[in-house]
Design a protein around this nucleic acid. Sequence first.
RNA 1: GGGCGAAUAGCUCAGCGGCAGAGCGUCCGCCUUACACGCGGAAGGUCCCAGGUUCAAAUCCUGGUUCGCCCACCA
Length: 879
Amino acid sequence: MSLPKAYEHKGVEDRWYRFWEERGYFRGQVNPKRNPFSIVIPPPNVTGELHFGHALNNTLQDIIIRYKRMDGYEACWFPGTDHAGIATQNVVERELAKEGLTRHDLGREKFIERVWSWKEKYGHRIREQLKAMGCSCDWERERFTLDEGLSKAVREVFVRLYEEGYIYQGERIINWCPRCQTALSDIEVTDEESEGRLYHIAYPIEDSEEAIVIATTRPETMLADTAVAVHPKDERYEKLVGKTAILPLLRRKLPLIADEAVDREFGTGALKVTPAHDAVDFEIAQRHQLEMINIFNADATTNEKAGPYQGLDRYECRKRVLEDLKREERLIKEELYVYAIGHCQRCHTVVEPILSKQWFMKMTELAKPAIQAVRKGEIEFIPKRWEKIYFDWMENIKDWCISRQLWWGHRIPAWHCDDCGELTVSRKTPKACSACSSKNIQQDEGVLDTWFSSALWPFSIMGWPEKTPELTYFYPTSYLSTAPDIIFFWVARMIMMGLHFMGKIPFRVVLFHSIVKDEKGRRMSKSLGTGVDPLELKDQYGMDAVRFTLAYSMSQGQDLRLSLADVEGARKFLNKIWNATRFALMNLEGFSAKGLTLKQLPLQLEDRWLLSKLARTIEAVRAHLDSYEFNVVGSTLYDFIWHDFCDWYLELIKPRLTEGASDKRAAQYVLYLTLRETLKLLHPYIPFLTEELWQKLPEKEAESVMIAPFPRSESAWLDPEAERSMNILQELIVSIRTIRSALNVPPGKQAKVLIRTEEPAVERLIREHESFFQDLAWVKELSVGAHVQRPKQAPRKVLEYAEVFVSLDSWIDLDRQRDQLRHELEELRQKLASTERQLNNVEFLAKAPKEIVDKEKAKSEELAAKVERLEKNLELLGV
RNA sequence: GGGCGAAUAGCUCAGCGGCAGAGCGUCCGCCUUACACGCGGAAGGUCCCAGGUUCAAAUCCUGGUUCGCCCACCA
C-alpha cells in the first residue's frame, strides 16, 4: 500500500460522513446502561445559510459530542431549525415582490402555503451544510419549530401561562416596525446613533400673550399631543400649571400639567405629551387620565386623526408640519442633535412607538427562579462575566410583547367573541365562546414571537408535553453553546421556561463562544459583504482544516479573527499528520500488536520519553476539553504531534526500523500505540482525516475511530526520569546544531564534537546515546568526559551541566562565532545582574518561599559559571 | 449616562503573581528517502501610559489614553 505524498481532502470528507451515518453512529438512544450526554443545537433560521459563527459554534458542539460519545456516554445531539417568523416572511415577501405581488394579493392561506413550499425547497440546505461540516447530529431527531409536535407544545405553554395569569392582552406602547408592519419586543429594536434635529416649538397659552416652548425631535407627533407637562418643582413654570395651552396648527386645547417624569434640564424643561407615541408620555397620560390619540396607520402614514395632514408618510408629515410652524412663527429654534433612534433588528427601518393592543407575558416572577439557578451555580456561564449581564437584565426585566402581526408563525390560540367580546383561550379550536356559547368567534389574527417557540426548544424537541422517555433520560441537556448576542432572546427565556414547565434547568453549562470576524477585524456579515461561506473554505482547504482553525483560534471571551494564513497552517498540520502516519504505516507492514505488552518489550529511552509525553498530552487534552478551552487542546495536540512525535521521536527511531534491528519491535509497538491514541485524540477536531487514517491502521481497535474509546492517560507511562534525560540530550543536540549553523556548516559535513562534563550521570547518558548525536547533529566523532580539553579555537556552547565544543578545523568563521558569543554574553550578564539583585534583597530572602529562593540561587550560580566560561572563551578568541 | 472587553515580537494572538511564548512573516543554511505543504538554526519585546500593593507585577489595585461591544424612557 502506498499513499500519495500529500493529503488531498477532496472526496474523502463526504465519503466518511456517509459511512458514519449509514452505520447509525449519530443515533442517541435511551440507554439506562450509560450516562446520557445531550446537546440541543441552537436552531438556525430555515431560510438562512450558515456563516462562520455557525461554523464555529457547531464545530465546538461537534467536538464535545464526539468526545463524550467516544468516552462512553450515550451522546445525543438534537438538531433542527427555526421558522424565524419575521426573517422568513421577509424573504418570501421579497420573492413575491419580484413578481410584483404582496402577501395581501395572495391572502393569508396562500401566502403561508408559499412560505411552506419555500421552506421545503430551502430548509434542507442547513442540514446539508451541517453535514458538510461533519456535525454528528442525530438526524432522526431533527425538528422544526413549526412542526406539529412543537406547535402543540407552544399551544400548551400559551394556554397554561394564560390560565396562570402570566399571559395577558393589553393596550400599551409597543415598538412598531412600519415596514414589517408588526409589533416588536424591546430587544428586537436596536438603537443607532443618528444625527437629527431638536426643534423648539412655542405653544401659546390660552387667554394670554405668553407661550410655552417645548423641544422635540419628532415634531410630527405633536398632532397627537394631549397635554404639556413640566416638572412640579420647576419654578419657571409654576404659575402655568393648570392653565391651558393651544396646540399650534390643530388648535387643540392641551392641559398644562405637572409630572415628576419631566427632566428640568432637558431642552426648555417643558414636555409635549404624546401618549400614543411615546412610552414615557403614555405613563404620564395614565397618571393624569389624558386622552390618547394615535395618528398613524400601520405603515406609519398619518390617519384621519392627523386632520389636514392625513395620508402623509411620517417624514413628509414632519416636513409639512415644520413648514407650517415656520409660517405661523411657532418654530423658535432648531439645532443639530445626535441621538439614539430605534431601528428594526430585521429590516433596519426606524421603529415607531405606537399605542397598540397586544399580547404580553409577565416576566418578573418567571425570572426569579431563573436568576437563582445561575446564582447558585446550577447553570454555569462561560465566560463568567456573562452572568452579570444576565442578572442585570433579568432583575430589571420588562413584560414581553409576544404577539406579532405576521402570518408566518404560531397562530395565537385565542378567539374573540363577536357577541360578548370575551376571549376564549384554548389548546384546540373551540366551537363556541366559552363565556356566552356564541358561535361568532374569530381567532386572533396575530402569531407569536418566533422566540416564544425557541424558548421551549430544549424540551419541546424531546416530545413535551408528552411524557417521553427522551425527556426523562436526556433532559436537562449537558451543554449549550451559543453566541452571546442571543443571551436575552434565547438563553434567558429557555431557562425561565425550562424551570417553569419542566421544574428543572434546561442545561448545565452555557458556553458563549467568540464572535467570528474577518481578517480586518470586521464582523462577518452578509449584509456588510464581509461574509465568507465556510463551505467555500471547505472546498479549498478541507473542513478539517477549517474546524481545526476555528477551535484553535477561539479563546474564551475573546473575538476570533479568522485568518486564511491560519487555515493554511492547519492544512499543513493535516499534511504533517498524513505524512507521519504514512511513515508509520510503511514501517508497520507485517507488524502485529497482538499479544504484545509494553512490559515485555525492550523499551529505549526515547520510547519511554514519548509514552510519558503521550500520557501528559492525553491528560491535558481531557482536562481542557472538560473546561471548554478548545484552543489549548489544539495547541497541545499540535505541539505533541509536530514537535515531540515527528521532530524527535520519528527521527530517533529511524535507525531502529531498519531490517534486523534488535529493538525494532519495541519501536514499532510504541509507534503503533502513539499513532492510534493520537488519531483518537484528534478525532473530535479533525474527524475526516482521522477516519481516513484509522481505516489504514494494521489492527483497528474499532471499525471506526468515531466509536473507539477516547484515550485515557496511563500512569504507568509517566516517566520523569526519561523526560529529564531526553531534555539533556535534546539540549546538547540543539547546542551542536546551533554552533554548526552559526558557522554555516552544512549538515552533510560531519563534525567532531567534544563535551566536557563533570557529572558522571550526564557522561554516561551521552555515551549510551551516541547514535543520537550522529543521526540528529551529524557528529562523526564524540569525546565526552571531565577531562576533555577544548581544541584550539573550537567554538563552544555552555550549558548548565556541560560545555560543548565543535572542532571544525579549517572552516571556522571566527567573526561569526565572536559576534554570537558577545550577544550571548550580554544576555547572560543581564540575567545574572537581575538574579543578583534579587539575592541581595533581604526581604526576598526572608519572605519568598524557600524553593523560589533556592531556585534563584542555583540560577545565579549557573549564570555566573557560564559568564565566566564565556568570558574566557572570548579572551581565547582574541577579543 | 452606566456596564463590559481589548492594548504583549513586523502581523494575528496565547499567557494573567515566580526565567516573556506560539503561528505567520523576516534572515541564514539544507532536496538529511514520511512530509520543500518539509528540515535545521537565528534575529526580533518600555508586555499602552502614570501611580500603588507585593520579597517579586505583562499578570493584582487605582487613575488615564486609544479602540471595540453591550445596556439605558433626556423628549
